[in-house]
Nucleic acid binder design. Structure first.
Lengths: 197, 197, 197, 197
DNA sequence: AATGAATGAGTATTCATTCAT
DNA sequence: GATGAATGAATACTCATTCAT
């Protein structure tokens, strides 16, 4: 049954996410993924070709989940500034979630240097993210809230850079309470880049 | 002789940097570090307590080297805009060097989630970097090239975020020629943040 | 299947005994234990946590085996003197077996100085051994073959000391034929201690 | 200078004894011996061929020291019973000394199974020990305190067995206060064997 | 005589992967 | 489909020994 198999895979991917967020890319074992999923070790190999395949699919599943969440948040708003605010809120969603995701995501980024597949999946994620901000900027320029001569591509890339860069800084920080501070810093820098007076 | 030992350690750290930039944090072996340094495996253990100690000292050595280079570049200029430009040039120094450093640096960042020591060394590096931009902003505000009401702390963090975020994007990019593009994007976003007309 | 696992462990313990009797505690490797058991190295780690765990269980298995053999031998006799003789015969069972066991046992005793676990297992073995002679002495005192005012505890300890001490002397001896001589010396000294005229 | 070299060797042997009593035969390193002797690692190799040679000479030095001490103690007494008492006192000299010596001695005994040299040195020590008790028994038989028909050889071996066996038992004991108890048990068993009314 | 830097052989341990049941 | 027993490659680390200084 296809449905069942899909559920099994999701169950394992969730377990892999959980395991990796605790142990890190290099320390996570198929055994611990199986343990988190409450299945036997053989099951993981039954649904995934090998360890790399499992983690590749985790990266894909994870980045899609994040992208879809951000997209839905932005689409729930109608004004450009509303969308921008919603985007930042969806990115800085909550300390625990951000920490968990970025720990895992950083691991994948560091692996991507040696791994073509991860690099491609991540590149697709980037394009999705750039698309979100491109749309926001375009709509803002149409309604005149953002300046006209802003380079959309450059700014989208910079905006994602700020998000990644700030969340990495926040992750390296001992002070988990700084989450709100980093969110506001991020939003303010977006306004500066878009020259919202 | 102390001098000799110091040279030996540097030789090994250079080799470790080389090895890690090729193989990544998890795949690098003490054997390959020894091979790169053209010494026997035992030598690495003679000068460093263990693998983690070796790589900790590599991170420290590396971030200090980068910081000192950036600082010297900035200090070689006298005007705020000259310093800003010099900073960006020193950060985006050359494709090969950036790729090598950021591959290794990303590995350490991803390990930092599980490793207090790495986190601390990196935090010190961050503070040094924030210090560089703080000084530039302060001098720019004094001479009136930058706006007065810019929050120095927030902006310094954002600027480092942009650097990290953009260089990670560039690293994930297949097109190595985009280095110049990312450098210019970085510089332009700095001007926007500092509200240079 | 539980039964199968138990057999596997016994197979490995027998192999460990064999390997240790030849190579000694410090020279025995998990590889050589695996070789003796005709399994792969990984199997040993599958059934035992680590090397120390393997050898701990070997000591326990071994001392229990010896104790049970001695107990059964003594119980097969009904008279005190018969039991005493049976005990000595079961202890000095055969040159090859004694040599094999005492070589291994001495290794464990020497490790026990640094190893709490070994010390505990050995202490339990001692208590079992003292129990055997205590019972023999008690029954001999009841029937009047042994003197009444013998201190059972002291004598039991001395008897075990004689066994250990003589078998160590025999083991250090080049002359393997002296086994019979040491057995008789042991038995005679027991009679002296129990004041059998 | 021969004198100086002899002192150096003794200094190293004392250090080796100290180190081995703490770390055990297998864990002791030439480095730790050198550390205890407060000399460099190279010095040990300068005065001894290799590790085994160092430890062989330690065993010889140690057993000779013990033997000479026991012999002197016995010779300081004139009556057979006095000598016997002195012997037991010299053997059970003090808890710390006994523990230190027997820990090291047991290590050597366990190695002797694989090491001809250790076996030979130990055999010589045994002969010396048997000689002490033989002399005591002979003198006791002459004066009539001990029974005439005691087999001197057998009894000497049994007496050493009791000493070794009891001190091993004591060493395995958690209760260091039992030293006195074991000494008395030893002495009483000697009286029983020698049939002193 | 003495030092300690350098070597490299040897080993416990981990874990992805396979496959018989 | 699912299990988990078995395999063995890979690697950090220790330490006796050598030897240039």
């Amino acid at each position: 049954m296809k449905k069942k198999a899909e559920e099994r895979k999701n169950q394992i991917l969730r377990a892999a996410f959980q395991a990796m967020s605790v142990q890190g890319y290099n320390s996570v074992t198929l055994q611990s993924i199986a343990d988190h999923a409450e299945v036997s070790k053989g099951v993981v190999h039954y649904y995934f070709k090998n360890k790399e395949d499992t983690l590749s699919q985790l990266l894909e599943w994870l980045t899609n989940k994040i992208y879809n969440y951000e997209l839905a948040s932005v689409n729930s708003e109608s004004t450009p500034l509303g969308k921008l605010k919603a985007y930042v809120n969806s990115v800085f969603v909550a300390p625990e979630k951000n920490a968990k995701f970025y720990r895992v995501y950083l691991d994948f980024l560091s692996q991507a240097g040696q791994n073509e597949t991860y690099r491609k999946i991540n590149h697709h994620f980037y394009q999705n993210c750039w698309g979100i901000t491109s749309d926001i900027i375009t709509s803002g320029q149409k309604t005149g809230v953002f300046e006209q001569n802003i380079n959309i591509e450059n700014t989208s890339k910079t905006m994602r850079a700020i998000i990644d860069g700030l969340l990495i800084q926040w992750l390296m920080n001992e002070d988990i309470n700084s989450h709100q501070y980093y969110k506001e810093t991020c939003y303010q820098s977006f306004l500066d880049l878009l020259k919202v007076n």
